[in-house]
Write a protein that binds this DNA or RNA. Structure first.
Length: 924
RNA sequence: GCGCAUGUGGCGUAAUUGGUAGCCGCGUUAGACUUAGGAUCUAAUGUCUUCGGACGUAGGGGUUCGAGUCCCCUCUUGCGCACCA
């Protein structure tokens, strides 16, 4: 029987579907394992071959774990809210729901064909009310919570209100937008609106007038991770800074826990580093610098280098700083106003591209608390208002930014470290011995920078001029989007007071047009009846894209529960994702938000693990591999790549689907586009036209998109799966290169024909030979270890070796061919299923066949060949019994034919024996 | 600038973690078969060679009997962050 992938794969899929084989349920008798893929956003373009890479890897692992006896949860769903469907709706008027549903159907069809072991009965879509009610529920829980730094946990807002009523802010250490001091009396005297406003300062989901990334082209605000280099990640439109009332999540309250948690999870070092970077913890001190002539006013600054305080030669305020108005002297007012105006008219992007040194003197001087000397206070946009206190002490000698500023405005530079040459550049390194650092109260001279830092910090605390402080770069997440296609925020406004609207799900209303209203309100402003039954208006903003993906992994544990996001029972059984596979582009978005969201739910007692993803693997990106033809200038003649140096040519992208192994199908090319119908070719002697190639992003315009459906059609899903794994290490980015897929296809056919001769099955019950057993046990050992290490590419090679060996041994023994089918099942499930059921005659599925154990005894060699080397250079081999003792090995090495030549006249200094590998004779 | 990766044949890659570098596949070459095909099979394939061997894992240095692997310096190419004090 010939290997017919279409028949084999269709019948395997039919069997799996009919037997509902991938459905899982809680089973306390078996250990659980949760394997998850980052669910896709179903775009209109469908899947290309890059998308399934991670899914194939996770599917191999899931299938393996299942065969190892684990109860494996392996679900798939769709991240259904997103801008493209809404943009399409704006252009065409088609409801995004319809677009989304169509795209999901297409994705499902494509995924179905690749043979994944997903439990589709647990599938979720973030735009289903039954799913997003739990997104809204979590939001309200955050709205009704505050973060207690003493307990290091979120707590119900009612407990905060109680505390305020009894003690005011006394004894309170809570994450907040700005420090606030209230007495119990102040609190009691506040009206409802005042209390609501005050509580916003502490709520974990809060409304704030924040500076946001506003994208006029998309008509919405964006979170920091949705902006890159001043442009929106989706669409690439310019982004401006704008102050707006927005819902925010107090992610920053969890900064330290997000950082600490990284040490307890099994993620790649580079991804952890990216998150550490993004969280950006820095230790330092906050200090007060009084303004000369105004003892009432002091600048609060943050620095990581309190040890450099003797080198402060000026102060700098961010243009947006509240201090600017306070320190500007009347004679400088005009200049300062002009500068502020200039800064305001520069976009974020302009600031990034053009990093000119700009600034203006405020007219005031601040007093250095250690030297008592006055230093000028400047205003410049190189200081950011959003970080620290928006004001800095400038130490030009030891900070390159301060240095550039000082040089530009001719301000003094005082070096503080012995031997540091600051004539050309600042000395930023934190090493050396301190000089010029002596005041009446503190003397740092002679100390190392490290010691000086500690001494300075100690002094700052003791003298009361400031306090030691840790700052984080991580900002709160802006949670409002001025968009239609997202989860409604379940908030209503009762007499102007934002109030939780608990009747969930709050369903997304229908609207006539997917655009802002004439008055500039978000699209939900068009909804009729958008108010509570009591008539209170509902929030018009919707949630951002990351909302729905922040806790979806919990929902898969218990997807149909109407009472809770996840039942206690399901949560305690499945606990957390054991293996999460997805792209590293989510490092500072989804993977931060999910961890935050999960930690919050953990604080609330809703989930039992505080980290959502125990192990995470980032699969590499699959790039496109474009092909080119070379048109000879001003002709319709194309020259083969190896001859193009003799002609003046223009490279033209050619559809990779009419090129095979870089050889162009000339007829197909003539039919590809009308202008090439009469194309002529200059080829090599063999008549073949060879194309050039380049690695580029996979995109339609490069004609390098390869659709998995086409690969499945031609080679079958098993070949696609194995080839994607064979391409290289999972975590590495690589171009999709079809050259070589034939090799994998050939292998699968070879494996198939191992079980057949002509039309008959040749598997019999003969005793396997020791050779046969060695081949298969070697394979089982290698593949088991490879799967555990996610080294799938080397497994494929092991399969090829094993099948070649068994074929040349003429192996027909069921005892060998059965385990071969079983270990092949995670990689090539369809062909394994066909072999298992049709050829080997089993009733059940190969998916449930227990993973075979290997036996070392078949792997032990009876004889072994060892290299004999002299001073490390191998000269000849000796073959001897594998268990030969050391003396015998040495003897054999010295007595071997040819040994005399190397030993001639030399003294043997040492003999090193690595059993089974090498004998090194050191001579001299 | 800071941080994290990475560098091995014509190409994708491998190397039991310090033990004969180049497994497996592609490509190439030669041969077999053949109803002539982009099918299948068999063999060869790092470079140089005076056929003894020599040289080879980005480059330079070091540790070691022995280094792709460990240490130091330089370079390459990716990626992340980036006026974060």
């Amino acid at each position: 029987m010939e290997y017919n992938h279409k028949e084999i794969e269709e019948s395997a899929r039919r069997f799996w579907r009919d037997a509902d084989i991938y459905k899982v349920a809680i089973d306390a008798s078996r250990p659980k394992y949760y394997v998850l893929d980052m669910f896709p956003y179903p775009s209109g373009a469908g899947l290309h071959v890059g998308h399934p890479l991670g899914y194939i890897a996770s599917d191999i692992y899931a299938r393996y774990k299942r065969q190892k006896g684990f109860n494996v949860l392996h679900p798939m769903g769709f991240d259904a809210y997103g801008l493209p469907a809404e943009q399409y709706a704006i252009q065409t008027g088609q409801h995004p729901e319809i677009t989304t549903r169509q795209n999901i159907e297409r994705y499902c069809k494509q995924l179905e064909k690749i043979g994944f072991s997903f439990d589709w009965s647990r599938s979720i879509r973030t735009c289903d009310p039954e799913f997003y009610r739990w997104t809204q529920w979590a939001f309200l829980k955050m709205f009704n919570s505050w973060y207690d730094r003493n307990a290091n946990s979120a707590r119900p807002i009612a407990e905060l209100e109680e505390h305020l009523a009894q003690y005011g802010t006394e004894g309170l250490d809570a994450a907040c937008t700005k420090e606030m001091v209230l007495s119990a009396e102040d609190w009691a005297n506040m009206d409802a609106k005042g209390k609501s406003d005050a509580l916003m300062n502490w709520r974990l989901a809060y409304l704030a007038n924040a500076v946001v990334n506003w994208c006029p082209k998309l008509g919405t605000v964006l979170a920091n991770d949705e902006v890159s280099e001043g442009l929106s990640v989706r669409g690439g439109y310019p982004v401006e800074q704008k102050k707006m009332w927005q819902w925010c999540l107090r992610v920053s309250a969890y900064a330290q826990r997000l950082l600490d948690g990284l040490d307890r999870i099994d993620w790649s070092e580079s991804l952890k580093e990216t998150q550490r970077n993004w969280i950006g913890r820095s230790e330092g001190a906050e200090m007060r610098f009084e303004i000369q002539g105004n003892p009432e006013l002091a600048l609060e600054i943050f620095t990581t280098r309190p040890d450099t305080i003797f080198g402060v030669t000026f102060m700098v305020l961010a243009p947006e700083s509240k201090y600017v108005a306070m320190v500007t002297t009347p004679d400088k007012q005009t200049e300062v106003d002009q500068y502020l105006d200039y800064v305001r008219h520069r976009t974020e992007r302009e600031r990034m591209i053009d990093r000119r040194v700009t600034g203006v003197f405020s007219g005031s001087y601040a007093i250095n608390p250690l030297t008592g000397k006055p230093v000028p206070v400047w205003i410049s946009d190189y200081v950011l208002s959003g970080y620290g206190t928006g004001a800095i002490m400038a130490v030009p000698a030891h900070d390159s930014r301060d240095y550039a500023f000082a040089r530009h405005f001719n301000l003094p530079v005082i070096p503080l470290i012995e031997g540091a040459d600051v004539s050309e550049a600042s000395y930023d390194a934190k090493e050396g011995t301190m000089i010029n650092s002596e005041g009446t109260a503190l003397n740092l001279n002679g100390l190392s920078v490290k010691e000086a830092m500690n001494a300075a910090k100690r002094y700052v605390e003791q003298s009361g001029i400031g306090k030691v402080k840790t700052n984080y770069r991580l900002r709160d997440a802006i949670f409002s989007r001025q968009r239609y296609w997202g989860e409604p925020i379940p908030i209503c406004y009762v007499d102007g007071i934002p109030t939780a609207y608990g009747n969930l799900p709050l369903e997304l209303p229908e609207i006539d047009k997917y655009l802002p209203t004439e008055t500039g309100e978000p699209p939900l402003g068009r909804a009729k009846e958008w108010h509570t039954p009591e008539g209170y208006p509902l929030e018009l903003n919707t949630m951002p894209g990351f909302a729905g993906s922040s806790a979806y992994y919990l929902r898969y544990m218990d997807p149909h529960n109407e009472k809770a996001l996840v039942s206690r029972e399901a949560d305690e059984y499945w606990r957390q994702v054991d293996l999460y596979i997805g792209g590293s582009e989510h490092a500072t978005g989804h993977l931060i938000y999910s961890r935050f969201w999960n930690k919050f739910l953990y604080d609330c007692g809703e989930v039992c693990e505080d980290e959502p993803f125990r192990k995470l693997i980032n699969q590499g990106m699959i790039q496109g591999r474009s092909n080119f033809v070379y048109r000879v200038k001003d002709t319709n003649t194309f020259v083969s790549a190896e001859l193009k140096k003799d002609y003046d040519t223009t490279p033209i992208h050619v559809d990779v689907n009419i090129v095979s192994n870089d050889v162009l199908d000339q007829e197909a090319f003539r039919g590809w586009r009308p202008e090439f119908a009469d194309a002529q070719f200059i080829t090599g002697d063999d008549g073949r036209y060879v194309c050039g190639w380049a690695v580029e992003k996979m995109s339609k315009s490069m004609f390098n998109v390869v659709n998995p459906d086409d690969v499945v059609e031609r080679y079958g899903a098993d070949t696609l799966r194995m080839y994607e794994m064979f391409l290289g290490p999972l975590e590495q980015s690589k171009p999709w290169d079809t050259n070589g897929i034939d090799g994998v296809y050939r292998f699968i056919r070879k494996m198939w024909s191992l079980y057949h001769k002509g039309d008959t099955v040749v598997v019999d019950d003969t005793e396997p030979s020791a050779e046969n057993l060695k081949s298969i046990h070697k394979l089982i050992k290698k593949v088991s270890a490879d799967i555990e290490n996610f080294s799938f590419n080397t497994s494929v090679a092991a399969f090829m070796i094993c099948v070649n060996e068994l074929a040349s041994q003429g192996c027909r023994s069921r005892a060998v061919l059965e385990p071969l089918a079983i270990v092949a099942a995670p990689f090539a499930p369809h062909v394994a299923e066909a072999l298992w059921r049709q050829v080997l005659g089993h009733e059940d599925s190969v998916c449930d066949a227990p993973w075979p154990e290997y036996d070392e005894k078949w792997l032990i060699e009876s004889t072994v060949t060892m290299a004999v080397s002299f001073n490390g250079k191998a000269r000849y081999n000796i073959t001897l019994a594998a268990d030969a003792p050391r003396e015998q090995i040495e003897k054999a090495a010295l007595e071997a034919e040819g040994a005399a030549k190397w030993l001639d006249g030399k003294t043997i200094r040492k003999i090193i024996v690595v059993p089974g590998k090498i004998v090194n004779i050191v001579i001299g």
